[in-house]
């Protein structure tokens, strides 16, 4: 009777969830280490005293890398860690929650998501799928990538074979780049042998880990195509709704902790890696020529306008993002001018 009741309540109050991940075992930040999904699982487990646990599975352990979205929609796993732009094949609007080429960097993008109405739009885009999403880890600014030859003008892009997936590939294609979709592990051998002329990956720390500096020496630092890269914590809506409020708060708090941890960690290791690359490994790091950047900026605007024209929801997200960006740009210029 009365005595057993609290125990029963506590039993119903326990949640053991599975979390899959689009990144493989051992990947720093996206799988292990500061701000990673495994770190998130640890945080929530200890905050909740074991009432909510996440059993983490890296890509390939339970399901392949890009199957997490469907698994969460179907409710077979409760959560998935990835980037929303992997799901842009379901709705192009998903692109905007990860990043936009020539869009806002970390402070602006996060400001838009948390305080500018971005997360409400994210909920609106995902509502038909029965899932909710939260900003997760973040790499900060990424790099334009590795080129075997110096880029001096837009002409150099004509027929340039570049490994570049996703939206930025489309922008490069508009400038005459021959877009290649090689999987991650084949980037190095292909670049080293000249099968491709250029490749994009992440930033100094991760690129150096892959050894790309041994395949090409021209490292373009502009990072126009990924001014930041926001991770996504995806949770099945029914499961989310079943959580009591205190556990919901812990999930939100742990995700924000991972956001700060991962971003600050990347800022720290990227600086160190870039110095190593330039000073010890003969890498030439420089931005793309201004003329090239201007042309990429135009092509990006055209590409985004085309995509936004296809779907009213994409249009809505696009306009909202750009309106916020216009105001934030004025502010961030002041910050940058110091």
């Amino acid at each position: 009777g009365m005595v057993a009741a609290p125990a029963v309540v506590r039993a119903q109050d326990k949640f053991a969830w599975k979390m899959t991940n689009a990144y493989g075992p051992g990947a720093p930040m996206t799988t292990v280490g500061p701000g990673s999904p495994t770190r998130f699982a640890e945080l929530v487990g200890s905050m909740s005293g074991g009432r909510l646990t996440f059993q983490h599975f890296a890509a390939g352990e339970l399901i392949p890398a890009f199957e997490g979205f469907d698994a969460v929609v179907a409710g077979t796993v409760e959560a998935n860690a990835a980037n929303s732009y992997f799901w842009s094949g379901r709705s192009f609007a998903a692109q905007y929650f990860t990043n936009v080429p020539f869009g806002m960097s970390f402070p602006g993008h996060m400001a838009w998501l948390y305080h500018g109405g971005g997360m409400e739009l994210w909920d609106e885009v995902y509502q038909p799928f029965g899932v909710v999403a939260f900003p997760f880890n973040n790499t900060g600014t990424q790099m334009t990538g590795w080129f075997r030859k110096e880029v001096t003008s837009v002409e150099d892009f004509k027929g340039l074979k570049m490994r570049i997936p996703g939206l930025s590939g489309k922008v490069y294609a508009a400038l005459g780049v021959d877009v290649r979709l090689l999987p991650g592990p084949e980037i190095f051998p292909a670049l080293e042998r000249g099968v491709i002329d250029a490749a994009e990956f992440v930033g100094p720390y991760s690129d150096r880990r892959l050894g790309l500096q041994k395949a090409a020496k021209n490292y373009y630092t502009t990072g126009w195509h990924e001014p930041n890269n926001a991770g996504e914590l995806l949770i099945n809506k029914a499961n989310w709704d079943s959580l009591p409020d205190d556990l919901k708060t812990m999930v939100r708090t742990a995700a924000m902790t991972c956001l700060v941890e991962s971003y600050t960690w990347c800022e720290s290791v990227n600086g160190a890696a870039l110095v190593e690359l330039v000073e010890k490994e003969g890498v030439i790091a420089r931005p793309l020529p201004p003329e090239v950047i201007a042309r990429l900026r135009e092509a990006t605007a055209d590409t985004l306008a085309t995509e936004a024209g296809k779907d009213p929801l994409v249009r809505k997200v696009h306009d909202h993002y750009m309106a916020f960006k216009a105001k934030h740009d004025r502010w961030s210029e002041i910050a940058r001018s110091v």
Binding site: G24, P25, G26, A27, P28, G184, P185, F188, P189, E192, R209, L210, G211, K214, A215
Partner: peptide, 21 residues
């Protein structure tokens, strides 16, 4: 090389594929 085993190991151990090859 090239080898699938080495490619997967490079990913897990965080060593460059070229070095393992």
């Amino acid at each position: 090389p090239p080898s699938l085993v080495l490619i997967l190991l490079s990913d897990i151990l965080g060593e460059s594929v070229g070095t393992l090859f």
